[in-house]
Design a binder for these strands. Structure first.
Lengths: 203, 203
DNA sequence: GGTAAAATTTGACAGTGTCAAGATTGATTA
DNA sequence: TAATCAATCTTGACACTGTCAAATTTTACC
């Protein structure tokens, strides 16, 4: 399971990284409720409390996983927004589709990233916020650009922050309803996204 | 705490109702992670395993709470949609605001109602579905009406189901981002809702 | 009044996160 | 090189959780 072939080391060497990696695997394989520190430690081949020397508590570990998720999401959003050889409308549509499909492909990770577990009552790590806030901010940057290009349906004075909150709310809401099992017809994701794009574009 | 003054009864009389009621209180007071069957039983004044004769397991109890929540939400939606003395646009706006404010006022209940806990992997009770599906369906009914009245921005052929999925996704997403602690400025809820309304209306 | 069913209890088990104290190792310094 | 110290890891323990099985108590019914 480990990639380092060295055996029987009291000091693991890079336990922190390994814990994050394996915990991410467990999350993807079996969902958040199957991620326990004890199972994680057993799978890594270390005692129950060893993780506590690298993470303050379970919450800190989860924040670490989410942190990587936000970096991934941020990078993906940049790619969508700057996709070459496409019209602005197509890139807007691409963003919506890619976002929802990210959540669809990594349901448990997405659930963790945006769940109240790591955000409520000061639970979020400083490192997590340092990864998430730029990702949030980028939504506003993209929206401001779309507004400048007169892409979005709206009357009155434009506000990039408010518009991005609505747009982000929409993709987030669709993603959540999908992965939480409320929308049962997962097959129609693309149609829903297409319809959303159409409702937001000015005609 | 109890409304029935009769004391020292081996048979509680209406334990099921009491459990649902008190569990709902605990949820509202301290959040879902503070709702445990043991604490609930202690608070009701009954042994740890007594609840198991009225609910198959903890999941069934949570479904029961959510069930009541959906009936409440459904009723509220009907009121918004049929509000007297208001234009259709105003009623559309009212629906958006009321929906988000329902989540804001009952964050933990809303979280439970739409969380994967009770929906994923066949966890949902038949009674829960019987309460939730009509609520979901009503979103489509409202949307169909709004489309007939040419209220919503869109090009091409209209589809009430798709449009309702997008609209519902939006209010759901805004609600979730708010109550999960991602949107830190809870004070601007009404502005966000107003902006959402404006983006969806045809101009 | 006796019996069956319903409701509730106690005991037990496996699992969880986390703390405290001790054991082991690697790095630093004298 | 030898000694020291901090980093790292382990064992033991605690309180808490959901849930099962078996025994107990009460109510309802024939």
């Amino acid at each position: 399971m480990k990639n380092t072939p060295e055996k029987s080391k009291y000091h693991h060497g890079d336990l922190r990284t390994t814990l994050l990696h394996v915990a991410g695997e467990m999350l993807k394989e079996s969902g958040i409720e199957e991620v326990s520190l004890r199972k994680l430690a057993a799978r890594v081949g270390v005692s129950r409390t060893a993780p506590y020397h690298h993470f303050k508590d379970k919450n800190a570990l989860l924040c670490g996983i989410a942190e990587a998720g936000f970096k991934q999401l941020h990078a993906m959003n940049k790619r969508s927004f700057n996709a070459e050889g496409r019209s602005t409308k197509e890139k807007f549509s691409l963003f919506i589709h890619e976002y929802v499909n990210f959540a669809k492909s990594n349901p448990d990770l997405y659930e963790l990233m945006f769940g109240r577990t790591i955000w409520k009552q000061e639970n979020s790590t400083q490192e997590l916020r340092a990864a998430a806030y730029p990702c949030f901010q980028y939504q506003v940057t993209m929206t401001r650009e779309w507004q400048k290009l007169k892409l979005l349906n709206h009357s009155g004075e434009e506000n990039a922050l408010r518009a991005s909150q609505v747009l982000w709310g929409t993709v987030h809401g669709i993603a959540k309803l999908l992965i939480d099992g409320i929308y049962t017809d997962v097959a129609h994701v693309e149609e829903i996204c297409d319809y959303a794009v159409d409702m937001f574009l000015v005609h």
